[in-house]
Each structure stands twice: as C-alpha cells, then as structure tokens.
Design a protein around this nucleic acid. Structure first.
Lengths: 310, 310
DNA sequence: CGTTGAATG
DNA sequence: CATTGAACG
C-alpha cells in the first residue's frame, strides 16, 4: 500500500496520546476567540498501539455538490491526502454529469457511484485504489434506496460502508422518516457484521453529545441534535460500534466537521461534528488514528481520515 | 437639458444620411465574416432636419435580469451614455430587491418600477432626469398587467411608453396570448394618441422584416418572426407609428439588438432587431437619430438610443 | 449562504 | 447560454 507524504513522515504511536487529548482551557467570555484545536497540530499516528503499521487510509467527505467541489479544487486536496479509499457524500450528481477530472482520476481505478432518483439531491460515491471483492448499493429497502445514500464495499478483512444519513429537516419535518432510517441502517450494519467486521463512515447527520457541537443548548429542537437522533446513535454504539474520533480524543472540544455557510460560522468555528468513522469491535486493535481535516476547504463539511491496520 | 459627451461632440445633421444608410456589400459565402455595420461608426445626429437641436435623449435596454446586469457594469455604460430617460425591460426584480447602485443613482431623481406577480419574471422600469407630469402602470387589463410589462410617462409634449412584449415561447405555446396582447396594446396606444403623440420603446419581441434578423428563412415558425407577430407590427405602423431606426436607415442590414447567448451568436452577429423606438406622426419632424448601441455589453440585448426634438 | 435543477427566454 | 426563485441543507 502506498501512503501519502503526511502519513509517511509521521512517527509511530508513542504513548503521547495524553497530550493530544488534553482539553484546552475553555474561554469563559462568550465573545473571546476559541482556543486552537490542538489535536490538529499533531502528526497523524500511522501505527496501532501494538506497533503494526497502518495499511488502510480512508477519507470521507461530504462535498455538498460534487461539481462545485471539483471546481473549488477539492480533488487537489485529495491528491495530497492520497487515501486508499475516498468516500463522498452529497454528490448531487448523476453518473452522466460527472466531471472528467474525477471520472478519469488514475489514482482510483475503481470507482462506484450512486445517485438519488431525484436529480441534484443526495448521492454518494466510493473511489478505491484496489478493487473490492464486492460492491453493493443501498440497504435493501426501496424507501431508502431511491435516495442514493449507501454504498458498501467488501474488502478481505472488513466491510466498508459509506452513507449520507437523511437530514431531519427544518421544523423536523422528516424526523419520523429519519427514525425509520436509523433503525433500518442499524439492522443492515448488524447483518453485515455477522460475516465480517464493519467500518461505517460518512455524514451521519447527528452530533452525538454536547461536546460535538458549539451550541448544544440552542439546538436541542433542531435537526442533528434531537434526543431521537442522539439516542439512535447511542443505540448503534451499544450494538458494537465505536466512534473512532471520540475514542482517540475523548475530551477534545471544538472539533467539528461541519459549519453552516451562514453567519460566518466557519471562521468563528461555530460547528458540528457530523462526520464519523464507526468501527466494529474486532477492528479496534487496528485503529491507528482518526482525524478531522478542518483546514480543507471546498464544502460546508471538511473531510475526515482514518488510519487502520487490518 | 444635459447631453452626453458623444452627443455634444456630434455635428448637426448635414445631408450625409445617404452614406449612413448605404447597404454594405453582402458576403455571398455563408461562412465569411459579415461586413462591418457602418452606421454604428457614424456620430449621433443630434439635430432634426430643420436644424433644431435634440432636447430629449432616451435609451431603452432589455437587461435580462437587472441584478446581474448591474454586476456586469451596465450602469457604467448608462453613465457614459447619459440619457434623459432610461427605459429597462426584463428587470426580473421586485422593488425590494433592487440593488442600491441603481436606487440611489443621482442622475435619475425620478424612478418608476413595475414587476410581475411572478417573482423573477418580466418587469420594466423607467428612470428620468426630469419629473414626468404623470406616470401609469399597465394598460388597464388585468390579464396583461399582472405580468409587469408597461410603464407610461406623460411629458409635456408626448407620452413615453416602455414595454416588454410577451415572448410567444418555444413551440409558440403563447402565440395566442401574444395576439391578444398585440391587439390590446395597439388599442392602448391609440387611446393615448387621442390626447398627445406617443413614443413607444422597448423589447417588442418581433423582427419586422427579413432584413431585421440574420436567418429569416429558418425562423418563420419561431417566436419573434411568425406571420402573426409581423403582421401585428405592420398593422401598428399602419395605425400611425414609425419604426424610427428603419426610417433613418432603410437599407441597413446586419443591425441587430439581440443575440441568443447560445452558439456564440453575438460574436458572429447572428442576431435579431427586437428593440424599437416607434413614433407618432406628429413627432417625426423632431426625429434626430435612432441608434443601436451594439458595443454595450451586459445582456443578451444591447441598448438603443433615440434623439428627439419636441 | 451555497448547490442544484426547473422555468423562461 | 444565462438569469431567476424553489427546494434543500
């Protein structure tokens, strides 16, 4: 496996995780600038606790419109990052309209696309350096599958599932649908796990705990931070999945992967952590690092990257 | 009255109109570049045949979206042109969304806006240096007036009507409505004329004769060059109006005011003359010049300018 | 605030 | 080909 420059320059894991996970002193006055996000300054950890080197680098990014994101040089960042697998959400692009810059990308000879019935809505993609054993689309329920939200790739040691979870909408108009989705997705993942461990990544459209968004108090009635969405996430973790970022950085505040375009939220780091890598129990010993690439621009989400040994 | 630099630099009318109206030799081979449009190189004529100097300069422009046109520096051209009255069509903007650049323009202290019921559709405006005696909106028929297509300003010596005539649509789906419109507009104009002569300007959405568009043969079934639209225009002229440009330049070919954005039509001068100043009989002795400003960019139409003595 | 297709021209 | 508001986020 080839890895990107940053990964190759990184030192192996060395017991310095305590520093990385230290919570910076919280600014008490509302208008003061937030403390820097220290974990981002740390080099990627590319070996597991047992010393094995990562052999799988996976990046996930909600691109909020693939065509605009390509124009904004999203692919140049991807080339630098050089993951083995690139998972994209909210492509909003059917296969016939894909820009040549991405369909012809030689770094990823194996490309999988899924779009919604409705044009310009939802849509996910997975691009791979090495060919998966098998690739499937959707989760086997027409109600969900017409929205183009899930691609599953089977690799020798695990399933990789990328998903764009339905937004519950303004006024929570789609929260009921979302609850059906959450139950059906969990059932799907547990089904997969009967044969192999699973990595699930993507825009899960929920901030799990108060630490996962800037303004928890004001958002308890808003899509992405309702009790229902948060509890479904808790239930999924209880069923055997681990939130890899939070596992690595249990106390890290101000670490977000989404900022609304409105009100200059990103420059003020008023954000949400909505993008995740969840890992089955069996994969946890191989977890090297789980990072949020909050400097990468081109969407209202930033990419996240997982380093894994399998 | 203040006039623009170009107008003040122009010599008075001097009997050289024959040169201005000479038809350039027509290129016979289809792919050869069209001859230059000679009349455009001539200075504006700012006096009438009887020697009186123009005291009214009126510009009309279909801006195809006022907000985009402002961003494309349409107003800078207007400042250079410095007309006494500026008539705009297809503003596609309700009054609350007007850019400050135009609502605050000191050159035109008197501004009149009309938009369609449907947002982002149709809409006309009239901006004046001096205040009209009276201004009215529409032509008194609800069916037409909800589309925001006519503003009438009464000046001491004449009515000025600016209009955006309904397009008959792809497949002529709206030709029947257009025929109603053409009849009703003519009735409206003749009603005005009973008290004062009339100048009507705007996007009339018809090329009158074969000379008025590049490809007459191919457009006989298309909106803007159907027999019905052309005959309605002929009927209007027969009722006492004169096409001021064609009167001044009776043989001038390749003189267009509209080019579709498609197929690089403008760079090839594959266009239509759709924008007009029509004058009542009584105003004809005061006609100085009627020009097509085909160098002005910012829309798929270019502006036209009338010089008049009243 | 920003992306997308639909309507309109 | 270009502008606009609607849907969605």
């Amino acid at each position: 496996m080839k890895r990107g420059k940053k990964a190759e320059a990184a030192e192996p894991a060395s017991g310095d995780e305590d520093n990385e996970t230290a919570t910076p002193k919280k600014a008490k006055k509302g208008k003061e600038p937030e403390p820097p996000i220290l974990y981002e300054d740390h080099p990627d950890v590319t070996a597991a606790a047992d010393g094995r080197k990562a052999n799988m680098k996976i990046t996930s990014w909600n691109v909020d419109g693939l065509r605009a994101w390509v124009k904004k040089k999203g692919l140049e960042w991807v080339r630098e990052e050089a993951p083995d697998v690139l998972c994209l959400q909210e492509t909003k692009c059917n296969e016939k309209s894909l820009p040549a810059e991405i369909t012809s990308m030689p770094e990823f000879p194996h490309k999988y696309w899924l779009s919604a019935e409705k044009d310009g809505y939802s849509g996910v993609a997975m691009l791979c350096k090495t060919e998966p054993i098998n690739v499937t689309y959707g989760i086997g329920k027409e109600e969900h599958d017409k929205e183009g939200r899930v691609i599953t790739a089977e690799f020798p040691a695990f399933f990789l599932v990328t998903t764009y979870v339905p937004n519950s909408g303004k006024g929570l108009v789609r929260l009921e649908y979302r609850k059906t989705w959450d139950a059906d997705l969990q059932a799907y993942l547990l089904g997969l796990e009967e044969s192999k461990p699973v990595v699930m990544c993507g825009d899960l459209n929920v901030a799990h705990q108060e630490i996962d968004l800037k303004n928890p108090k004001g958002n308890k009635k808003n899509a992405g931070f309702t009790v229902e969405e948060r509890e479904a996430f808790t239930t999924l973790l209880a069923a055997g999945f681990t939130d890899s970022f939070r596992h690595r950085y249990p106390e890290q505040a101000n670490a977000y992967s989404f900022w609304t375009y409105m009100m200059n939220s990103r420059s003020k780091n008023v954000g949400w952590r909505l993008d995740y890598f969840l890992l089955s129990e069996g994969l946890m010993p191989g977890l090297c690092d789980s990072k949020i690439r909050n400097q990468a621009m081109g969407s209202d989400h930033c990419p996240i990257t997982l380093f894994l040994v399998v």
